[in-house]
Design a protein around this nucleic acid. Structure first.
Lengths: 150, 150
DNA sequence: GCCCTATAGTTAGCAAAGGTAATGACTCAT
DNA sequence: ATGAGTCATTACCTTTGCTAACTATAGGGC
């Protein structure tokens, strides 16, 4: 009985668009999370490690703001990454309250491999779309990124 | 130091698109979840209740498949909804192993109000986009829905 | 120079929501 | 009529978010 059309959501209104996006995003994220479970880093850890790689010598507070989590949540993620030798915490050069986080060499290697694995599922799904659909998603990606960043 | 450009992700490749989507989706979902915390239903409960409303007399197993969760997770969500008088479980007409779930009247009223509240944040963000950006998201929404459904 | 407030990070404890494994009730084909 | 399969549930664990409270440090006003 799963064949009924599930979305008679009115996409014209902003509220309808919001509904459609919210529901799909939640489901997709759940799906991606599950896909990632087979690999060595959780999605949160992976996203954080990638952020540390992009902004080397970043502080936990800045990372928390970037990833839109509270500082204590970021503390835990960093602790997990440090325990696995993927990031190192060093004192901030001028402010001893702060800490700077950087990726290790091991992390760079792992990131490369993880990226390949972690994206496999979604990439495969993307390949199953038509070229036009992919093109729309390409245009949508930066907008979603912008929305996620507010 | 949050001003650096965070995404030099190559959107041309499927893997790059996959990366960009994955990161943004995770962050947006986190944000939406937090936004929802002020209201009376969790996002998962809300999504499930909405699904029950759309497919009345659906079984837990079908709901689990729809929402891409395992049956035990769905059992818990349904139990929470039943405890609050929002759904009722009745025996399946022909198969006594199964159960059919339907929304109550209270739920229909609540759904309407919740929808209004829960979409407020995202709608506001959508209004801050340009008309063209919204148009792209309108085109992207069904594709994301399709991706989330595979 | 000394306090007082503000800030950065962490710790402690809680809640939401997912998962797997095992169980009980029921169905159905052999 | 029995044994395998199916549906829902229960029990338990994990991840990952949160808030509140604590510690250490910074920095300004007196």
């Amino acid at each position: 009985m799963l064949t009924k059309n599930q979305s008679q959501i009115n996409l014209r209104s902003d509220a309808g668009l919001a509904t459609a996006l919210r529901v799909s995003l939640a489901r997709l994220t759940r799906r991606l999370r599950r896909q990632a479970a087979a690999h060595s880093l959780t999605p949160t850890q992976f996203a954080t490690l990638a952020a540390v790689e992009r902004h080397s010598a970043i502080t936990p507070g800045e990372l928390a703001e970037l990833e839109k989590v509270q500082p204590p949540s970021m503390t835990r993620v960093i602790a997990a990454l440090e325990e696995r030798g993927l990031v190192s915490r060093t004192p901030h050069p001028t402010d001893r309250r702060q800490v700077t986080v950087t990726v290790t060499e091991a992390a760079q290697k792992l990131l490369k491999e993880e990226r390949r694995l972690k994206e496999a599922w979604l990439s495969q799904r993307l390949r199953e779309l038509t070229a036009e659909e992919r093109s729309i998603l390409r245009q949508a990606a930066p907008i979603l990124e912008k929305l996620s960043r507010i």
